[in-house]
Write a protein that binds this DNA or RNA. Structure first.
Lengths: 198, 198, 198, 198
DNA sequence: TAATAACCGAGACGGTACGTCAAGTCTTCGG
DNA sequence: CCGAAGACTTGACGTACCGTCTCGGTTATTA
């Protein structure tokens, strides 16, 4: 699976795409968002800053939104948590990882953009869905392990519980418009453990 | 809201504003959102559908965002919960009220728009803040009463707990892209009560 | 006829178009053509120089070509010749009028543009057709008067003769790429008079 | 033309150029012009239809205009008129030859393109100049012979007269937008003979 | 009753960005 | 070296939407 990506194996005919273009474009988006906000992310501005032409961008992403989503995704990265033997530790791990990501400048704007994109009918919902799904599935895995260990009541609805874990952080960031902090994560972990525990 | 209209009506040298314009405009926004999505909510489209001129709209709301927010607010309405003597019942009450609102068609789009508006720096965050704040303060009030009754541990951080209550519903709607249902509310109430209970 | 134009009578509702915009745009086109050639006539450049927005231009003319044609037309002006009692004098009059117009800088480019536009299938051929038609009908009128006076053989095909009169000037300008002069006009008048005379 | 190909074929270190590419490209241009008009003559379209790559085209012609001119030239062919002993017959000969060429579909468009190319300052005017010059010099030769034979007044300006002969056909085609016919040629010949005759 | 002030619909305006298209160049592979 | 394929830059195109302004005209309150 990594092989296919790394090898980029069967190259077709014609001049191959330059990675530089892809990378620089994504970088330019992030820079612009963090420096001047989403409103400043103009395709022309991105192209200019990246030293890339607009057609080259549109060859890669079909629209401005798709580009912004791709940029966001490229910065958020994976978040898998190993079995730490303790649900409390594992929950703190996921939430802290996300906390760190959210505290990067511009993240709130990027997340909002992702969410807006997701809400558009017919838009590339997949993208934000992917991101959410990654978080949710990891959280569910942790809760599942908790059931196995007897830390979580077996009758708890895993999906509901996972939502309870995942929602507050982004809600505080976007709705309450406040950067979440470690104290908040502690509170959450504590409450969630009580909520699902025996 | 009605106040502003009434106050204005008290005196004024010129021709008074027609309520029809205000109402039809708000309706048009809601209709457009539910029928064709946020992207279709163009000021021209709104004006055309409402049978109203653009200046008439801008005389009432300073920007498109303000208009959309006003439209959303006009549909969501207030949500105050009386003392029911039982934190479980009161939580179910707030959440069910919101559940009902969210299940109206187009609400997801409207909420997203609200959130986007909130995320814009310098924008009228106040508005969405208002909505969020209304939910949060009501929830905090419930939790506070719970402490008084001994249903909630006094060392619980009320703000964190309120976020825990308020976040999952909107997260499921916007991020998980799924209409929340009564079963989900039940799960939430149950988990929250355990989370904050003694 | 002039009345309708002057009165601009039944004005529709809404803000009326500003003549300044129309005029300045046309001027800008002419200036750009004469200064830097047709290639420099970019819609953005025109808009910038005229101090006008692109949409305002497109509201008036449906395409760049239509704009250029309109600009050309606006400079070429009418060319009606009164009855001078003598076909030779009248022919010299039309041809000299056109000679004067063609000797304005940029006219060759403008005429070529007009002709190109005319050659485009489905394009606004009307415009160039109009211009050509104006010349041709005036020329035909002169020849007709010549027949009445007995200066032109009655069996002469008026259309063919009119083409014989109208073609050489523009041919010399565009195909031979040479600015026609008074000597050339004299030669033409002389030859044409012999060609159609008794 | 063939000469260039042959010369090139004489030697060369690498793979020789394929005539197929040259021919198919020219054909593709003509086809596109006649079928869809000048606007459809895109380098990509030409390449696609000819089954040829863009670099292969640019290896042969330095620009799109040069290509179109080459295509036009390849179809129009030479036009030399032998001494027929009679100016009337010779004039009819040149004009009929051109009439035949102009009646091929797409010629009007091609000629316009040539003319446009000629009008561009600094462009390869030579090309259209060549074509015009070929016509003009042949016409001048005819008139010169006419002077020798006493059919043409010696004081006639040969250049002016040649323009008088050459212009009407193309004017009728491009400006009047009408396919010239044999009757028109007859009229022209007749009038020209009178114009220059004693 | 007349003046005045604010309203109203219609639609043009400046501005900004969008997404697209074509020309001509460059890069990779294979013959 | 030629050729196909196709990515690249450049630069312009025509369109969409925002928020403002300008009309002609209407409807109230004030003088």
């Amino acid at each position: 699976m990594a092989g296919a990506e790394t090898q980029r194996a069967e190259r077709g005919p014609g001049r191959p795409r330059q990675e530089r273009v892809t990378d620089d474009t994504l970088d330019a988006v992030i820079e612009l968002v963090t420096e001047k906000g989403v409103k400043a992310v103009t395709m022309d501005a991105v192209a200019a800053r990246a030293g890339v032409s607009k057609p080259a961008i549109y060859r890669r992403w079909p629209s401005k939104q798709a580009l912004i989503i791709a940029a966001a995704e490229s910065r958020i990265g994976p978040l898998t948590v190993p079995d730490l033997g303790d649900i409390r530790a594992e929950l703190r791990e996921v939430l802290t990882a996300r906390l760190t990501a959210y505290r990067l400048p511009g993240t709130a704007r990027l997340l909002t953009e992702l969410m807006t994109a997701a809400a558009e009918a017919g838009g590339p919902q997949v993208a934000y869905g992917d991101y959410t799904e990654r978080i949710m599935s990891e959280t569910r895995r942790i809760l599942q392990r908790g059931i196995a260990r007897g830390e979580v009541r077996p009758e708890v609805d895993i999906r509901s519980a996972a939502t309870l874990v995942a929602a507050p952080l982004v809600y505080r960031l976007l709705a309450e418009r406040e950067l979440p902090n470690a104290r908040f994560v502690d509170d959450l972990v504590d409450m969630v453990v009580r909520a699902v525990g025996p």
